[in-house]
Structures are given as C-alpha cells and as structure tokens.
Design a protein around this nucleic acid. Structure first.
Length: 401
DNA sequence: TCTGGGGTCCTAGGACCC
DNA sequence: TCTGGGGTCCTAGGACCC
C-alpha cells in the first residue's frame, strides 16, 4: 500500500492532499493537542499546525518517530523511522498527525479481504503489505500478470479509495523488488530474463534480508550492486558471512528464491513495550516503573486471552539511556496467560539484570506460545523436562553404561 | 539530532540426557 | 583422571522487517 498510514488520514482530511504530512509522533499529549476542538466542547477536530509552530515541540512529539510520510514530505528528505525532532528541522511546514491504529487496521482488513476475493493464496506481511501467489488464478498469466494486477489495484481502490503498487515476478524475492519500481500506484513486471538489466544494477540493500549491517559489510568488501554480489565466488561469500548466509546471498543475487507463499501461520510470541517520556531510574523512579511494568504485563495477558494463546517463556526487555538493550527470560513448567503469573515471573527476570543505568524502555514478552485449546486438549500436562515420563531404554541404541 | 512498537529468525554457548 | 558423540531445550543477543 502506498504511504499507507498517511493515505488513511488523507481519506479523512482530503484538504491535506498534496501537503507534506507526517504520521507518527508518539505521546498522548500530541493526540490531545491535535484532536481538541478549539473551545474544547465541539467535535474533536485536528488542528493542522505545521510541526515547527508547535509550542513546546519536544514535549509534544517527544521521542516519537515517523511511521509514514506523504510523498510531498519525502521531497524534504523526511522518511519512516526518522525521529520527529529531526523531521521538524528538515521540513518545518509538515503537518503532524498521530497514528489511528483502529482505522489503519480496519483498512488493512478491507484491502486484504478484497485481494483474497480475487486471489485466495495470500500471505500477510504486516498491515500494509502482502504476497500473492496467483499462479492458479484464472487469467493470472495474461500479459505477464498485468491484467490481474490491474484488477486488484482497481478493486482495492473501489473498496477503500487507497492506491497500492504491485510487482509481478516468478518468485517472492523478485516480486518484492519489482513492487518498488513504479511507486506510487504502479505495476511492474519482472521476468526471469530481466535479472541482468533490472536487478543487477540495484544496490544490495534492495534485497529483502540485507539490512544496514550486511549492507555496510558488503560495501567495505567492495560489493555494492546486486550484480557485484552475483559475481562473487560462493565460497568467498561463505567465508565472510558464514555457510548459510553466504550461500543465500549468492542465490538471491542470481534471482533464485523458492520460498512458498504461506497463507497461515501461528504466532510465536506476543509482547508489549514502552519508551518513557524521560529516562527512569530503578531506585529513584521505582513506583512509576513498577506501575508501568504491571500495566505491560496486564496488557500482554489481555492480548493472549483475547487471541486464545498461552505461553511458557516469560521475558523482559530493557533499553538503557545509552540505547543498549538487555533481555532476560524464564521458562515456566506450564504455559500461562495469567497477568499475575506473568508479572511475578517477569519480576524474577528483572532481578537478574543490571539496574545501575537509567532506563528509557521497558518491555514484557510471552513466547513459546500454544493455542489455549490445544493446551487444554493435552490435559493441562506441564510441558517441561521435569515431569516427562521416564523413557524406556531401547536395547538397540542404549549406551553400554 | 538522537533513535517507536510489534514481530520473526538465527547463532552460540551451556545444561542435560542417552 | 581424562575422554566420545549425538540430541533437545534454554538463554542472550542481534539482524532484519513492516
């Protein structure tokens, strides 16, 4: 989806069309400022104040980052994941709006439903992105897929008023890269034989899975484009990046990817975390931290209960004022979705982590999830090594002593 | 200029078992 | 007293993605 979060807001406030708008920010106080009617009584209307004219800017956008910027805002070098304070400097006239998660989720469901009505084999990749395997959709091969891509674009626009960009290719790897060739509201078809002309000139960072670290390491080795990568000896790549990553790099540089489009998957973990308005100290701000900690546990527990999961690995995450992160976890004999159990176990984890530095973030995670219904089917048997039934020795494999 | 929140997957060492 | 070779699970950190 094109500039998804921002586009959703533009549907509501069409008067902002064409203006630099950034979505994000972070603090509730920003919402209050933006969504208050001027006299505080009427309907809550956003006040479209350029970010630079915010009184006490830092208090309002705080530690927030940009989730999405409109294409007009991107002209100023503003982009997702950038801190709001920096964005305000680069583009002082930008209008800032908070994310409306409910509305974003509603449009996300709507566009995905529209797609599955046409092409049922769809994989979720977050709120604003999907993979579609339309190999077996009638008419899917016409004009290399362009006809179906156009139909999907039109159907989504009719249902939501939103535009998207579609890449069509023989596999997911190439389709993902193709989807960026013609943004916004574009379609791009990449055939296997286009590898050399369309893919090899791109920077290695365009490969899904090569991020800042690998990109930098490759650059230091003189490998900049995907073509450069394809030219490397696989053994050399494995020497620098390990067996598995090295071999993978070689394959993707040659456009090879046989990963299937997976339509269903089970969650592995659920978590809640929060960055504080100011750094907090474990001793001096004990009461406040404790309140936040309990609240995070409560919210994870609610998420688990609402979605019907239990998990046995309880973990915490801390981020210190120097931005370094620490995690601790503890695995229970029996999976849980109970807030008090999570709070108690997370409390034990907290005792094992250094607390001298001030903290900027605290998070709580529950992993090793299983569906509550599946867990109950097993008769509530603790999933643990401690009370596994003793195994009968197999005479063929039993050790001699 | 400081850097969100929610995820997945991988690696590596150690405990423990046979 | 020192020495195998599997295998699984747990834990901590980190890369990466949307």
């Amino acid at each position: 989806m094109d500039a998804f979060f921002a586009s959703v807001e533009l549907l509501r406030y069409p008067q902002l069309k064409g203006l630099p708008v950034v979505i994000g920010g972070g603090r509730r106080r920003a919402d209050d400022l933006l969504l208050q009617s001027p006299d505080g009584t009427g309907p809550r209307e956003p006040r479209f104040i350029p970010v630079a004219e915010f009184p006490l800017l830092k208090d309002y956008v705080g530690r927030g980052v940009i989730t999405t910027a409109t294409y007009a805002a991107r002209q100023f070098g503003v982009g997702s994941a950038m801190g709001m304070m920096k964005a305000a400097r680069l583009c002082p006239q930008a209008i800032v709006l908070p994310v409306d998660f409910d509305e974003v989720r509603r449009y996300s469901r709507l566009f995905k439903h529209t797609i599955t009505e046409i092409a049922p084999v769809m994989q979720d990749r977050g709120v604003d992105e999907v993979y579609i395997d339309f190999t077996d959709v009638p008419g899917g091969q016409r004009e290399g897929g362009r006809v179906l891509a156009r139909l999907i674009q039109k159907s989504i626009f009719d249902a939501t008023g939103l535009t998207c960009s579609i890449g069509v290719a023989p596999n997911r790897l190439l389709a993902k890269m193709a989807s960026e060739f013609n943004k916004p509201n574009g379609i791009s078809i990449v055939y296997a034989e286009d590898l050399q002309s369309k893919i090899w000139p791109l920077n290695v960072r365009k490969i899904n899975g090569i991020g800042p670290k690998a990109g930098e390491k490759l650059a230091a080795l003189g490998v900049h484009t995907i073509g450069d990568l394809a030219a490397q000896d696989p053994q050399w790549l494995m020497g620098h990046f390990g067996q598995s990553t090295g071999a993978w790099m070689h394959r993707v540089a040659w456009g090879q990817d046989d990963s299937p489009v997976v339509t269903e998957s089970e969650p592995v973990s659920m978590s809640r975390e929060t960055t504080f308005e100011r750094d907090l100290h474990a001793v001096r701000d004990r009461a406040e931290l404790s309140r936040i900690f309990t609240d995070l546990c409560q919210r994870v527990a609610e998420d688990l209960q609402r979605k019907g999961y239990v998990g046995k690995t309880i973990g915490i995450k801390l981020r210190y004022d120097d931005f370094k992160t620490a995690t601790r976890d503890h695995t229970l004999p029996t999976p849980t979705q109970d807030a008090a159990t999570i709070r108690h176990t997370a409390g034990l984890c907290l005792k094992r982590v250094p607390l001298e530095r001030r903290l900027r973030l605290l998070g709580v995670r529950v992993g090793a999830l299983v569906r509550l219904s599946d867990h109950l089917l097993l008769g509530d048997v603790p999933v643990s090594t401690t009370n596994r039934p003793p195994r009968q020795p197999d005479p063929h494999t039993a050790p001699l002593f």
